[in-house]
Design a protein around this nucleic acid. Sequence first.
RNA 1: UGGGGCGUCGACAAGUGGUAAGUCACGGGUCUUUGGUACCCGCAUCCGCAGGUUCGAAUCCUGCCGCCCCAGCCA
Length: 570
Amino acid sequence: MSESSSNFIHDIIEADFAAGRRRLVTRFPPEPNGYLHIGHAKSICLNFGLAEKYGGQCNLRFDDTNPCTEEEEYVTAIQRDVRWLGFDWQDRLCFASDYFERLYEWAEQLIRAGKAYVCDLSPDEMADYRGNYYRKGRPSPFRDRSVEENLDLFRRMRAGEFPDGSKTLRAKIDMSSQNMNLRDPPMYRIRHVPHHRTGHAWCIYPTYDWAHGQCDAIEGVTHSICTLEFENHRPLYDWFLRELGIADPPRQIEFARLNLSYTVLSKRKLIQLVQQGHVNGWDDPRMPTLAGLRRRGYTPESIRAFCERIGVSRADSLVDVGLLENAVRDDLNRRAPRVMGVLHPLRVVLTNFPPGQTIELEAPLHPEDPSFGTRTLRLSRELYIERDDFRENPPNKWFRLAPGREVRLRYACLITCQEVVRDPHTGEIVELRCTWDPASRGGQAPDGRRVQGTSHWVSAEDSVPAEVRLYDRLFTCEDPGAQEDFLAYLNPASLTVLSGCRVEPMLAQASPGASFQFERLGYFCVDPDTRPGHLVFNRTVTLKDSWAKIEKKEQASRLASAGGPGTPRG
RNA sequence: UGGGGCGUCGACAAGUGGUAAGUCACGGGUCUUUGGUACCCGCAUCCGCAGGUUCGAAUCCUGCCGCCCCAGCCA
C-alpha cells in the first residue's frame, strides 16, 4: 500500500502508540436504514484503512437501535457494498442488538448508583423542561424517585406494562449544563415494535447515545471515529463510560463528513429521491450510493483512490465531483478495453469500395497495453460514423470530416467526403458518400501525408444495435442539499436514453458490469438490464474533450468580437 | 442571549516558530491512428481580518469577522 497523505488522525494514533498503546481497533458503524453512499465510503476507507495501516482490525457493526426505521434489506445491502469496496471484517460482524442484554444490565447499574431514573414526562413536556440554548433546564418532577421505584418501573417497562412513549429511562446528569446533551438525556424509550434481529424480545430500545460508547467498549474499540456532529455528544459518551467504570474506554475522534457537488448525501434526502420516484431505486446510476456508482460503472478502486485524494480533516467542505470523475477515468484508462461504438449513427458509403467485399483488420484492445490482445474489425462498403464527427460548414480548427475533407477511420483507412445526401423532405443529412484510399489500409497514409482527424466507426453490416444511457449530474446546482427545496434543482436532463446506437459485434458477448472505453467518447459499462438481443450500456463518464473546450473558446471570442458582451439571443 | 467546532490557491489539502507540499481544475507546450493517455512548464511574496510577541509567524498572544453543529423518546 502506498503511503497516504498524513492527517490529524494519524498523528493522534501515533501519539497514542508512542504513549504506550498496543493495538488499534476501529469500526464502521452504519445504521441499517438506508443504502451506503460515497460519504460512507470515506468513513469505511478511513476506518478499515487505519486498521490496515497500523496492523489493527476494523469491525463492521450495525447500530440497529431503532427498529422503527431499520430493515434486513439494508443489512444485506450494506454488507455487499462494504465487501465490494474491498474490505473484510472477517468474523467481526457485530450488531448493537447483540448487546441489548448487556446494555440493560448497565442501565440497572446506573439506576442503582442513582445516576438514572424513570421519567413520565411526555415528549413535549420533556422538551419544555429541557430549556434551550439560552435558558437552563428544570429538573423533571420524576427526577428524585428512589432507586427501588426506578428499578421496579424500569423492569416493568421492559416487561411491557406501559404504552409507547409513556416513560423513558433518563441519565441523571445536569439540567443546567451548557451542553444540551447532558440535560438528562433519554437512554431507553418504549416501542412495542418488533426488531429485525431480536424479534419481539424487547419493547424498550436503547437510544444511540446510550448504546454507542458501550458498544465500542464491548468490542474493544480503541479509536471511535465519527463525524463532527457527534463532537457535542462526546462528553455524554465519556460520562457513561466513566460512571459505568469501564476500563480503557474508546477514544472518540471526529472528522468532517463528505459533501459532493451536484448531489445530496443525506440519507433522508436520498430515501426521498427513491420513494418519490425521482430516480429508479437505490442503484439508479445517477445516485451517489455505492450501489448506484457500481451500476454506473465506477470501480471500487476508483472510489478508494478518490477517498485517498480528498483527505481527512475537520473543515467543512464541498468536494468537486470532478475529482471523483477523474478518479474513475484514471482507473478505467488503465483497465478498460478499447472498442468502438457509434451513439448517433450517420451512414457512410464508400463509393469506390468493391460491393460485397470485406476487409478484416486487427485492432489492439488497448493501445498502451499489448496484454489486452486484439480483436477483428470488418470494413466493408457501408458503415456508420458519429454524426458529430461531420460538419457541413466546419468551424475553425475543425479537423474531422467535412465536404472535400479527408479523415482517418480508426485502425481502418483514410476516407474523403465527396457528397452529402439529404432527405428531400426534411433536409436532414442521411448519408455521406465518400471515397477511400485503398493504399491506406490500417489507417496509415501511404505517402506520409498528414491526416489529423481520426473518427471511430462501425461496420453497417456486422455492428449490433444497442441502447445507451447517458447520465448527467442529478442536480443543476452545486449544493442542492443547502437549498430550501432541493427537489426544485433536480436536473431534468440527468438521463438521456439513446436507442439507435451501433457497437462492435464483440460487445454482444459482454457480461453485465463489464467496462469498456468507447474510443473518443467515454467509458461505458454493460447494464444488468441487458437481455439477449437487447444490449444496454451506461455511460460511466466521458473522456476529456479538448475539442469541446476549443469550440467553446472560439465561440466566446467570436461572440465577443461580433456582438459585444451580453447580447441576448433568441 | 449559551455551548462546541472550523477558516491556507477556483475545489480538496499538507504544514505544528525558520521563510507556503501534493491532487483536481485552469493556462501553455511535446507526443499521438482516441482533439484520450503520457510527459514538460506555469498557476498563493501569501495563509479570514486587524493589532501584538519575536532576529524571524500560516504556525504563539489579543481583538474582530465569517461559516458549521447543538433545544428528536433519529443516528
